[in-house]
Simulated assay, not measured.
Amino acid sequence: MTALGAVFRPQLPPERLRALARLADETGLEELWLWEDCFREGGISTAAAALAWTERVRIGVGLLPVPLRNVAITAMEAATLHRMFPGRAVLAVGHGVQDWMGQVGARAESPLTLLREHLLALRALLAGERVSTRGRYVSLDDVALDWPPDGPVEVLTGATGPRTLRLTGEAADGTVLTAGTPPEGVRRARGLIDEGRQKAGRTDPHRVVVYLLTATGPDATARLRAELTDEGFADVPDLGVAGDADAVAKAVQRLVDAGADTVVLQPTADEPDPEGFVRFVAQDVRPLVP
């Protein structure tokens, strides 16, 4: 079955998260995703709070920029969430927005090398291994977690470019694609991910999560068009959806047909009713998505 989620956008102040997370839990939404956009809410802190406030909804963080974190800290925080809230935390890592990384003095000369080293070390630490490595960016000397997760956990990676997509297939357990990815882009991404998986000899499952920019209500078309224009995607065909639950469900299905396993509906930055959006996804769209 296709998993369906919604985004709590960091344009909202953090004090709004509690009510919205509880609403997601109560309405049966499967996944609520958070962003660590500079310089708004922190991903781990908001995820921990949302998990503590809820009982069943899965909380995703898409994504944690690896230039900002020592991999040991990423592993410690991820393992803590997975042990306290088994099966409910979904964490993705990635390059981060390079301009933001430059602002804080963390921009890497080779983002791809950094991400590869971080992924390999992170997955090993979360698997309970003792790790010693000395790479270009990641150095660990006899490091192991005292409290690793009780079982296997997936590590997702955000990706857009071909080399990063191949890397996710090779070294991650899943891939997160931005709302700038139309169905044809999902197909291309799946192909590149599979190239990486083949190179690494991987046959385990690989989840593809896709954000879908979504607007509903009387001004939905105008709000969607304005955001796509602001993001430079106005000329990209079949990107985003505006309309009622039936129209949104059909857009979700197009992404699923292209290779998405999970579709996360992303409201526009000016969504006037975030709580209403969560209800719309959980109560109106979910029954129409197989």
Rank of each mutant, 00 (worst) to 15 (best):
H206R: 09
L156V: 12
T181S: 06
G158Q: 07
G185R: 11
D142C: 06
L212N: 08
H206P: 11
T181P: 02
P152K: 08
D219V: 10
T175P: 05
G191V: 11
V138Q: 01
T203I: 05
D141P: 03
P148F: 03
E184M: 04
T216C: 15
L192W: 09
R187D: 01
E154D: 14
V209W: 15
T181Q: 06
V155M: 12
D219W: 13
P162C: 03
H118Y: 09
A159I: 06
R225Q: 09
D146M: 13
R190Q: 06
E170S: 15
G128H: 04
A127N: 10
L192V: 05
A200E: 12
L212F: 11
P183N: 09
D194R: 15
R166S: 00
R166V: 00
G201W: 06
V155N: 01
R202K: 12
L140E: 02
E154R: 15
K199D: 04
K199H: 08
R202Q: 05
R123V: 01
A159F: 07
R225E: 08
L140G: 01
P205W: 11
G135M: 07
E154S: 14
T221S: 13
A226M: 13
T214C: 15
V186F: 11
R136E: 07
G185L: 02
T168V: 07
P152A: 08
H206L: 06
E129G: 12
G191K: 09
D204F: 14
G174M: 04
R225V: 03
E227K: 10
A179H: 13
G185M: 05
V176M: 10
L140N: 03
T157V: 13
R223F: 05
R163P: 06
A200H: 15
L212P: 10
G158D: 03
G232C: 09
S132N: 09
T168Q: 04
G180Q: 10
E231W: 13
V210Q: 06
P152H: 10
A226Y: 14
D146E: 14
L224M: 07
A159E: 02
L125Q: 00
G135H: 02
G151D: 13
D173S: 03
A159H: 05
T216I: 12
E231H: 09
R187S: 10
A159L: 10
V210W: 09
T164D: 06
D141C: 07
V209D: 08
L156R: 00
L213R: 12
Q198D: 11
